[in-house]
């Protein structure tokens, strides 16, 4: 599992739009929103393509955590 940590809370329409785009990528599971940040969860090791998309959307990636 890979968790992409975003330095902002993603919710509402933005969350829905991002979810729709990420569904095109293998292994996408969910976007979890917290108080000031969000995590995008993938059940997939190779995530460079969705990562590029996330960066193009001007979302700041703080870290990518691999959870075993």
């Amino acid at each position: 599992m890979k968790h992409i940590l975003i330095k902002e809370k993603i919710n509402g329409i933005k969350k829905k739009e991002l979810e729709d785009k990420l569904l095109e990528f293998k292994g996408f599971m969910e976007i979890k929103s917290s108080y000031k940040s969000s995590e995008i969860v993938f059940d997939e090791k190779e995530i460079s393509e969705p990562l590029n998309l996330i960066k193009k959307m001007n979302l700041i990636v703080e870290r990518i955590v691999e959870y075993r």
Binding site: I6, K7, S34, Y35, K36, S37, E62
Partner: peptide, 11 residues
């Protein structure tokens, strides 16, 4: 049970 940004963790 989640990961949060460092800024939020400090909070």
């Amino acid at each position: 049970p989640k990961y949060v940004s460092e800024e939020e963790r400090i909070l």
